[in-house]
Write a protein that binds this DNA or RNA. Structure first.
Lengths: 151, 151
DNA sequence: TTATATCATACAAATCCTATAGGAATTATA
DNA sequence: TATAATTCCTATAGGATTTGTATGATATAA
């Protein structure tokens, strides 16, 4: 699995929304500036996230985006799959399973790639956006400055 | 990490060379036909594998390729890094470490991505080409047909 | 009515990936 | 020596993907 700029932007934006969860909507302009993400590019990404059911929007003046579920209920794996496709290094889980089952000349290779896919999934499908928030704050508290994410 | 066609071809070709290790050189024409890899494309890949020190060649008529080390001494991770770059889903190990250390707004995210990278590395850097040969044969023996890889 | 958002589509630019082409250099063999 | 078969090397073409820009439509608070 490889995370594109698009995917990285999506993750960063969702983290911003996670930190602001329960405080109403956040505008893209603000996130775009804070995170250094090209505004119009971010708009497109948000449409995909909305169609994927991760965020909901409020149109018009004072509009913006917010998470459609609580940060605990959204995993990194779900985000990455939505934006960048399957976690497997080759094809996807069911394709790999099929290739292993077929017992062809490279079934051993595919079996290991399936292991890799499962290892990635074990991490990314378990880590929620909230877990990342907590982890980030913990990392910050070890340092001198307190964590701040004001939009 | 994502494996390209180029990377998949490289792995398949190296598996062919692994199964034939100790039996002299194997010609690309043969591998190309057996594996359905475009011949001229495979040539380029082999040059990269040679420059990376994984294979050695014999020129001229009756020439061909063979592994430059025993299959036990070549890991999947080494092959994939050579052809498709770092295992990390974003940047590489040292970049991710640095980003986590900086304790920025997304250090928690980068920490998890580093975990993913380490999980991939734990698998791919331990599995050797020989391990894959064994695994493939085992998978074959469970079925009715015996394994055969004649070039 | 106006200002400010999201929504949607088209398109442009750049990069990467895949594959092909043509030939040079090397070597076994007749 | 000539020939055939192979690796070696570079250039390049075509396509796919990624990244980003442009333009305008639609919705809504003030």
């Amino acid at each position: 699995m490889k995370i594109s700029h698009r995917g990285e932007y999506a993750l960063k934006c969702l983290m911003a929304l996670s930190f602001n969860y329960g405080k109403g909507v956040v505008q893209l302009r603000s996130i775009s500036e804070k995170e250094g993400i090209p505004y119009k590019f971010l708009e497109q990404i948000m449409i995909a996230l909305k169609q994927g059911g991760l965020v909901k929007s409020q149109k018009g003046k004072l509009g913006g985006y917010q998470l459609s579920r609580s940060p605990e209920e959204i995993s990194l794996g779900e985000v990455i799959r939505l934006i960048d496709g399957p976690l497997a290094p080759l094809g996807n889980e069911s394709e790999l399973k099929k290739l292993v089952k077929e017992r062809g000349r490279h079934s051993g290779l595919y079996a290991v790639l399936l292991d890799v896919r499962n290892a990635c999934s074990a991490i990314l499908d378990k880590q929620s956006l909230r877990d990342i928030c907590v982890k980030t704050i913990e990392l910050q508290e070890k340092g001198t400055e307190a964590y701040m994410y004001f939009i």
